[in-house]
């Protein structure tokens, strides 16, 4: 569905993307994850034809070069920066963007209503965007990307500023779109939602892909041990020397593939735990182990 070949893009001396290549299949949800400044937005803007690459090629739905208007018909983009007309109503915004893609008449009515309902703004369609909260505006931004019902959706930080409740709704909606065959590229510096949604993810750092695989395979390959945090009932006086990790007051942190072995040993020695928390490895740990640092921003 989407082929990206050897994309390069620089802004002056700043290299934003360096030899970016990947394929996304029809109906696939593809994550583009990495810290702020990794080049995710630049990549989506190239895919949407908002920018032209310095070199490299993009094919979308068998159409070449998204800087051509005809190719852009296949794409819907929800930009990271909110791009809405604040002095128009939610509905006027949605209808305007629909019209730009050649939709009119009854079809436009139907699509605009659907898109607004879809993001949970059906009731507030007549209100000016100026009066919207950040989360509502973010949702409308998404509706405006959906209104022409494109086969390919580019979502740039779609959860930014969204409260927990709307987040669950949106995640559910993305799954729905996926189930209906939409191809989604999901760019975010937060890994959690992408982990839940994406079939495959590319981890991006400083304009390069440092890993690309399914979430499970990445975690299995690079995730490393689980992180365990134990709170003792009181600071332990005589921790056995063969225990991993560090003790600080009553808190014990360690990494292990098999934390249960250590915990049952201590329990057998009569130590009481106030709480135990096991953080299974995720994309965070993958990113950390690949770059030797945290995900930043």
């Amino acid at each position: 569905m989407i082929q990206v070949r050897s994309l390069h893009k620089s802004f002056g001396a700043q290299v934003a993307l360096d030899n970016l290549s990947f394929d996304v299949d029809a109906g696939e949800s593809f994550g583009l994850l990495g810290p702020v400044g990794a080049g995710k937005t630049t990549a989506l803007h190239l895919l949407a034809g908002l920018l032209a690459p310095d070199s490299g090629e993009i094919t979308i739905d068998d159409a070449p070069d998204p800087t051509r208007p005809a190719t852009r018909r296949h794409i819907g983009i929800a930009t990271q920066a909110l791009t809405l007309y604040e002095d128009l109503t939610a509905e006027q915004n949605a209808r305007f963007f629909g019209r730009l893609y050649g939709i009119s008449g009854a079809k436009l009515d139907q699509h605009a209503s659907w898109a607004l309902e879809f993001v949970g703004l059906g009731e507030r369609r007549g209100e000016l965007v100026r009066s919207f909260s950040g989360g509502m505006a973010r949702r409308l931004n998404l509706a405006c990307a959906l209104v022409h019902n494109p086969p390919v959706l580019l979502l740039d930080e779609p959860m930014a500023g969204i409260d927990a409740q709307s987040r669950a709704l949106l995640l559910e909606n993305f799954r729905h779109l996926k189930a209906h065959g939409r191809t989604i590229i999901y760019a975010s510096h937060e890994f959690g939602d992408a982990e839940a949604l994406c079939d495959r993810v590319a981890l991006l750092a400083e304009g390069r892909i440092i890993a690309l695989d399914t979430v499970e395979d990445l975690v299995a390959g690079y995730g490393g041990p689980a992180q365990v945090t134990v709170e003792f009932a009181s600071p332990p006086v005589d921790m056995p020397a063969d225990m991993p990790g560090d003790v600080e007051g009553a808190t014990w942190r360690f990494f292990s593939e098999d934390p249960l072995a250590y915990l049952s040993q201590l329990s057998a020695e009569g130590m009481a735990f106030a709480s135990v928390r096991v953080d299974a490895p995720g994309l965070h740990s993958v990113f950390q182990s690949l770059t030797g640092r945290g995900q930043g921003g």
Binding site: A48, G49, L50, R72, F97, L100
Partner: peptide, 8 residues
């Protein structure tokens, strides 16, 4: 910038 994504 956003309008540039539309097929116009």
């Amino acid at each position: 910038v956003r309008l540039r994504a539309a097929p116009i």
